[in-house]
Amino acid sequence: MSIPIIDAHAHYGKWFFPIYASDMRSIKDLMLRFNMKAAIFSSSKAIVYNLIEGNRELFQSLDPSSGIYGYVTVNPNYLELSKGEIKRYLELPEFRGVKFHTTYSGVPIDSKEFRELIEYAEPYDKPFLLHTYSQKDVRDVENLAKRFGGVKFIMGHMGGTEASWTGKNWKSAISAASEYSNIYLEICMTRLEAGKVEEAVERAGSQRILYGSDMTLLNPAHTIGMIMSSEISKEDKERIFYINAKRLFKI
């Protein structure tokens, strides 16, 4: 890989699948293999289990000199604990954003609780990475983007895929990003539906599309190959792989 990469969607920690490349040594090896200059990690433990333990373990592993930055994960089921985590970590230079996963917490993205956390974190001026995998998730992010015009929201997985193979989730996400300038699209997902990168660039522009790997769950090559294969310009690829994230995360 000759193009430098910043990974806007990475995880630190284990998953409940047979994946052994999940420690920091394996992560650094993957970053080197794919020419990643930086990556923003959230803790898988904080997402699927305990935010306090997970955020703490992540913090202990962050190393900005090696390009290893973090998202602080919040869980709106635990409002006060989440606010405590924001206060503890978000002003640190190691942390470049907030991560929220609606599926594992069971809390909708556009919920009273999450809105309260956005208001709490807004003064730190750091983006939110939100897991989106349905049209409802996309609509929820749209609502938040409208309500919090000064906050930048990253749609993780660009709305995701669905069983029907129609692409309607990611098409909705592209529409949302084309309407709201504070919505960014992060494009990793397991299914590789050809044409989605081209459509995102055509309708939303390449300035707010971000490369994300979803490592340590997914292989960075998966999404790198998607962008490499896509029929967009070299300049667009450079923006998606590196330039947009460098600007957004102030790296």
Binding site: R191, L192, E193, A194, V197, N219, A221, H222, T223, I224, G225, M226, M228, S229, S230
Partner: peptide, 10 residues
């Protein structure tokens, strides 16, 4: 239907 290089690069 898919992007080729995703599969190949892996």
């Amino acid at each position: 239907l898919n992007y080729f290089e995703s599969s190949y690069l892996m």
